[in-house]
C-alpha cells in the first residue's frame, strides 16, 4: 500500500470516528467542551477550598492542563487498544495495522484543535492578551502531536502482544496525569522534584503552553528538544516493530 492510500484511509477512518461520536450521543460535539469544563469545575472547587487557590489565573492553569492532557491521554489509551479492537477485521484484510492507532490519533487531534481554539478564546475573555509568543503555540502543538503518535504507535504493539497491557496502560496514564502537572504548576515545586518531573515530556509540554499563555514567557527550548529526541527514538522503534510484525498481529490476536 502506498503512502497516499494509507493517508486516505487514516483520514477517512478518523472522519468515521468523529461522526460516530457525534451521532451516538444526544449532545454530540458539545461533550468535547462539557467534559473538560466539568473536570475543571470539580478541581477548581477542590483546590479553592483546600488550598485557598483561585482567581482567573488558576482557571486558566487548570483548563489548559486538562485540555492538553486530554489530547494525549485519549489518543494513547484508545489508540494503543485499537489494533486489538479490530482483531476480527485484520483476519480478513491485509492492511498496515498502523492505520488503526493513526486514525484514532487523527480523530483526537481534530477534536483537540476545536477545543483548543475555544480555550484561547476563553483565555482572551478572562483578560490575557494575545502576544507575539502565541506564534510559538503551533510549534508546541507539533511537538505534542509527534509525541502522541510515537507513544501510541509503540503502545499499540505492546498491548497487542501483551494482553494485560491495556490495564497497565490505563493505570500508568492515570499516574502520569498526576505527574504531568495537570492540576498544579511544576515550576512552583522545589528544584529536586522539578528535575525528576521534567523527565516526562508531557510535563514539559504542559508547562510550556502555560508559560506562553499565562506568564507570557518563552518556553524552555532545551527541555522541549529533549522531549523531541525521546519522541524520535520511540517513533523509530515503533515503526520498525510495526513493519516487522504487520503479518504477525493476525496470528496473535484471534
Amino acid at each position: 500500500m502506498n503512502l497516499s492510500a494509507l493517508i486516505n484511509i487514516v483520514m477517512y477512518k478518523a472522519y468515521a470516528e468523529i461522526k460516530a461520536e457525534i451521532s451516538r450521543t444526544y449532545l454530540g460535539l458539545l461533550w468535547w467542551i462539557v467534559e473538560p469544563v466539568l473536570f475543571m469545575l470539580t478541581f477548581y472547587y477542590l483546590f479553592s477550598v483546600m488550598f485557598d487557590r483561585g482567581g482567573a489565573e488558576f482557571v486558566i492553569i487548570l483548563i489548559t492542563g486538562l485540555v492538553i492532557w486530554k489530547w494525549f491521554g485519549s489518543s494513547v489509551q484508545t489508540g494503543s487498544f485499537s489494533i486489538y479492537a479490530n482483531r476480527y477485521l485484520i483476519q480478513q484484510i491485509c492492511i498496515p495495522k498502523i492505520i488503526f492507532p493513526l486514525s484514532v490519533v487523527m480523530a483526537n487531534t481534530a477534536k483537540f484543535c476545536f477545543v483548543f481554539i475555544l480555550l484561547l478564546g476563553l483565555v482572551n475573555i478572562l483578560g490575557y492578551a494575545v502576544s507575539g509568543l502565541w506564534l510559538y503555540l503551533p510549534i508546541l502543538i507539533l511537538l505534542q502531536f509527534f509525541l502522541i503518535i510515537s507513544v501510541t504507535l509503540f503502545l499499540s504493539v505492546f498491548v497487542s502482544f501483551f494482553p494485560d497491557g491495556k490495564y497497565l496502560v490505563d493505570n500508568c496514564m492515570m499516574l502520569l496525569m498526576f505527574l504531568s502537572g495537570v492540576f498544579f504548576e511544576i515550576s512552583s515545586l522545589p528544584d529536586e522534584y522539578q528535575n525528576v518531573l521534567y523527565l516526562n515530556p508531557m510535563a514539559v509540554l504542559i508547562e510550556s503552553y502555560r508559560s506562553i499563555i499565562v506568564l507570557e514567557m518563552a518556553p524552555d527550548w532545551g527541555l522541549l528538544l529533549e522531549g523531541l529526541c525521546m519522541s524520535i527514538l520511540v517513533l523509530v522503534t515503533a515503526l520498525f516493530l510495526h513493519a516487522k510484525l504487520n503479518r504477525v498481529f493476525p496470528k496473535v490476536l484471534r
Binding site: A5, Y12, K19, N86, L89, I93
Partner: peptide, 25 residues
C-alpha cells in the same frame, strides 16, 4: 462487510470498505 460501521451510510461504508480492500479513493 469487513469493517462496516453501523452509523455510516451505505455510500460511506462503500468508500471505507473499498479502501480497506485496497481500492483507490
Amino acid at each position: 462487510q469487513a469493517g462496516f460501521l453501523p452509523y455510516m451510510t451505505g455510500e460511506e461504508n462503500s468508500m471505507l470498505n473499498g479502501m480497506l480492500l485496497g481500492a483507490e479513493r
